[in-house]
Amino acid sequence: MTEAEFLVALPDLAFQAVLLFSRLGAAVMILPGLGEAEVPPQIRLGLGLGLVLLVLPVLAPFLPPVPDAAAEALRLVTVEIVIGLWIGGMARLLAMAFSVAMQAAASLVGLASVLVQDPAVGSGATALGRLGSLAAAVIVLSGGLYALPLRALVDSYALIPAGGSWPAGAAAEELAEAGAAMLALGLRLAGPFVMASVLINLALALIARVAPQIQVFFVASPGAILAGLGLLALLGPPLVATFTEALVIGWASLPGLR
């Protein structure tokens, strides 16, 4: 390409880069691991721009040129942002399952009153819930699982080309299914703590029935907490393995990968 041809094509290339960044950048801002609140916005912005530089030469022939009307350009950019948030949001929902499971475990073992700030849920969370959020980010980054949502983003251009219409109805249905999958996984991970809580409470009820003069709650509460923490230490590796496997399977069905 000569310099004159490049100058003529520059407006289209600039607009196409903006379209790419709208989808990729919006997703990177909320993707698990890469888009954590602890990651500075400048780094997330740099990641989005780096992805644009990588995929622009490949996808440029399939991207629309600069439209004549500003309203049409704004519509295209808005649709791309929504698509990026949709794909990134589905990936984020499934990754929240570990935090949900640990939040439930904290309530079951008597640690619900120990609250810390957790940017992942936007409000105060239990200490175990915060541990679950950090553990999920570490698992995604250390295991290289972040490559699956990124690949889904790039491959989504074959499923939903830039400039096309966004299937809002199907997207809402898939988002609801992702939320249901997250809750199901969270409950599955929290299952051992549910069983432990039931057994402990049954034992306490029997003790209170046999010896009503004993303040069972105050005596057994520290023991229940220790038992819950011991169960977490014992089941930590299987829980991480189950969560990792569920992430791989769940993210394999993201738009663009299935």
Rank of each mutant, 00 (worst) to 15 (best):
I225Y: 00
L63T: 06
S123F: 04
V39F: 12
L76R: 13
V121R: 02
V8E: 12
G143Q: 12
S197V: 03
F62G: 04
L226F: 09
L257F: 09
L148P: 03
L199R: 11
V8L: 15
L59I: 08
L56I: 08
P212R: 10
S113K: 10
V52C: 07
A101H: 03
E72R: 14
A162S: 14
A70N: 05
I139G: 03
L257D: 05
A95L: 06
L199Q: 12
A9M: 11
L34A: 10
P149I: 09
L175I: 11
L34I: 15
A184Y: 03
A137H: 13
F243Y: 15
M195I: 07
E80R: 09
E5A: 15
G144Q: 11
M90A: 07
L183R: 11
P161S: 11
P237H: 08
G132A: 06
A37P: 01
A220M: 15
L24H: 05
F217L: 15
A147W: 08
F218N: 12
L232F: 12
V100K: 04
A147V: 14
S123K: 12
A14M: 14
L232D: 02
A208D: 08
L74R: 05
L229N: 02
A220E: 08
A147Q: 13
V100S: 03
G236L: 15
G110W: 02
A71R: 13
A246Q: 03
A37R: 09
L145S: 06
V121L: 08
V194E: 01
G186H: 06
P161R: 09
P61N: 08
A172R: 14
G46P: 01
E177R: 14
Q16D: 02
L254C: 06
E173C: 02
Q117P: 01
S107E: 13
A211F: 12
A71F: 07
S99C: 10
L150K: 10
P67M: 10
A104H: 07
S156P: 07
A37V: 10
R188Y: 01
Q103M: 08
L232Y: 09
I249D: 05
A125K: 00
L145F: 15
L206R: 11
G25F: 08
R92A: 07
V28A: 10
Q213V: 12
G191T: 06
A9D: 14
F217C: 01
E38H: 11
N201V: 13
L47P: 02
S165R: 00
G129M: 00
M102P: 00
P237E: 06
L19Y: 06
V216N: 05
L45H: 10
L45C: 03
V210T: 12
L175H: 06
G230R: 03
L7M: 15
A112F: 01
L229A: 02
A220Q: 09
I160K: 06
A14I: 15
R23C: 04
V58G: 01
L7F: 14
R151I: 00
S107M: 14
V116K: 01
L31H: 09
R75Y: 03
A101M: 04
E72S: 09
A105T: 03
L94T: 02
L226Q: 04
V219H: 04
S113I: 07
A14W: 10
L175D: 03
A17K: 13
Y146A: 14
A73K: 07
M102C: 05
F15S: 09
